[in-house]
Design a protein around this nucleic acid. Structure first.
Length: 492
RNA sequence: CGGGAAGUAGCGCAGUCCGGUAGCGUACCUGGUUUGGGACCAGGUGGUCGCAGGUUCGAAUCCUGUCUUCCCGACCA
């Protein structure tokens, strides 16, 4: 049977869906817009989560956990934030069901059990966390407070898409409190660097660090920093955000501290998060028609060994060699599986592990045994080589590093080739329609202009790059003066 | 929330116009032959046709209502 995944750029959404569903990462739930992360997908998330978690801890953060339910009165305390999320929160209004008097075996919401105050299911946890921080912070000695939480959140989106936009998703959200504005801004940027480091070095996905325009800013933030990545269909994806919240939440929740000079002041805050959306980014950035391509550093399985045999005797001889290789690879901390399941034939296994994105495949059969060889295939280039069994483990260790680097280089080359400068409006529109990717152009800095550009082209300012050089120019739409280019793109 | 499409076996679909025993592919089970890129042969299991009403001797099929999902917009990480 031929592989069912077919890629055509115009059917990118369908291709992406098929890939996620068939590679064993996730399923759709019967509950609208929610996803089920399958064991393989969760293993991938665990690796990503553990790597990030370590990076947070290495930078002085600790984990905690806060409630799923947020009383409406707390939720509405920070007005900008509340209004920003109001349209997409799930609301709990009752606390009990009862038997339906009209239909046997059915239940109805008990009208007697209406809550005095509705509970919001967190779309993000600023409200519940800051109402708690109020009690935890009195003095500068309590600061900085550097807390992260791994949790699920719910945002009732009109339209959902596996991993990229689901009604419920898993993420981490950091919430920190600081004595000074400078320290809080430093924290915001530190986390941005952590995110960029993780996405580039673990996920092999190059990103652009930047600041959001006021239109795209997180509701309740003073500044939103972000990392932006480019997908293979030319659309941009926001991969992570880090917000400088100023004193907005401290004021809304009355979180004050006494400083060294005995002055009372509001604390300065940050919040930051990345979600299971990163898995979507990974799939869309690296994969091909044959399935997933996972960077070795986050692949749940880095290598797989597939035996080829015609009878028991051959199988026994292959087994012996395979177990030796497994042992050697494990000594080098390489995750490996010997798939000697007799139910599937070798060809089936080849296709299966390619679909799952396993970086390296080792095949051993009688032909190889006779020559003390194995066939080693790499997923990123699909190249196959015959390698001597002597020293094969170190060969594979090097190969994994090479694959990691190659996947990154490939993505970076593609990304760089798809950042195009535009200086005229017609050129700008043409580039968006025909080439896609990031368009680097001047913008007059006004929300109205950004809004007009979005209406006419569906493109938004993805970010104002942090490392942008200063350069005089004219706004792509209005012709007004501008001092630096910003990145536009159509985005997910 | 606006515009389109679809709900029939685990999955993918045909059948619906024109009402008359529930079909195909795949998966699954049994036996045998196979095994270097998703094997083949034979036999078999599995479905109150999304749900609720209605018309009819008879409804997957016609009518009414309803729920859900997908796609395209607006919103969003």
């Amino acid at each position: 049977m031929a592989k069912e995944i077919t890629t055509r750029k115009e059917d990118y959404a369908q291709w992406y869906n098929d890939l996620v569903l068939k590679s064993g990462l996730a399923d759709y739930s019967a509950v609208r817009g929610c996803m089920i992360i399958k064991p393989y997908g969760f293993a991938l998330w665990e690796i990503m989560r553990d790597a990030l978690d370590k990076m947070f801890k290495d930078t002085g953060h600790v984990n905690a956990y806060f409630p799923l339910f947020v009383p409406k009165s707390l939720f509405e305390a920070e007005e900008t934030n509340a209004e920003g999320f109001a349209k997409e929160v799930a609301v709990v209004t009752h606390y009990r069901l009862k038997a339906d008097p009209d239909k046997k075996g059915k239940l109805i919401v008990d009208p007697e059990a209406k809550l005095e105050e509705e509970l919001i299911i967190r779309p993000t946890s600023e409200a519940i966390i800051w109402s708690t921080y109020k009690n935890w912070i009195q003095s500068y000695r309590d600061l900085p407070l550097l807390i992260n939480q791994w949790a699920n959140v719910v945002r009732w989106e009109m339209r959902t898409r596996l991993f990229l936009r689901t009604a419920e998703f898993l993420w981490q959200e950091g919430h920190t409190a600081h004595a000074t504005k400078e320290e809080a801004i430093k924290e915001t940027k530190l986390i941005l660097d952590v995110y960029a480091d993780f996405v580039e070095n673990w996920m092999a996905l190059p990103v652009i660090k930047g600041v959001k325009t006021p239109n795209e800013r997180f509701a309740g933030a003073e500044d939103t920093y972000c990392i932006e990545a480019l997908m293979q269909d030319g659309k941009a994806l926001q991969a992570g955000t880090s917000h400088f919240l100023g004193q907005n939440f401290a004021k809304a929740f009355d979180v004050k501290f006494t400083d060294k000079n005995n002055n009372l002041d509001y604390v300065w805050a940050t919040s930051w998060g990345v979600s299971t959306r990163l898995i979507g980014a990974l799939v869309m950035a690296h994969s091909d028609d044959d399935g997933l391509i996972l960077p070795p550093k986050i692949a749940p399985l880095q290598a797989v060994i597939i035996p080829i045999y015609k009878n028991e005797d051959e199988k026994n001889r292959v087994d012996e060699k395979a177990h030796e290789i497994v042992k050697q690879l494990k000594e080098l901390a390489i995750s490996v599986k010997y798939d000697d399941n007799d139910n599937n034939r070798p060809g089936w296994k080849f296709t299966e592990y390619e679909m799952k994105g396993v970086p390296v495949r080792i095949a051993i059969g009688p032909r190889d045994l006779a020559n003390n060889n194995a066939e080693v295939a790499r997923r990123d280039t699909k190249e196959k080589k015959t390698i001597s069994l002597d020293g094969i483990s170190s060969y594979i260790k090097n190969l994994l590093n090479e694959i990691q680097q190659n996947i990154y280089n490939r993505a970076k080359q593609y990304r760089d080739e798809n950042i195009t400068e535009a200086n005229e409006w017609d050129e700008f529109v043409k580039l968006l329609d025909e080439k896609g990717g990031f368009i680097s152009a001047h913008w007059d800095g006004s929300s109205e202009t950004e809004e007009k550009i979005k209406e006419q082209t569906k493109a938004t300012v993805r970010c104002i790059p942090l490392n942008a050089k200063q350069e005089d120019g004219k706004c792509i739409l209005t012709g007004k003066l501008s001092t630096q280019r910003v990145l536009f793109a159509r985005a997910y």
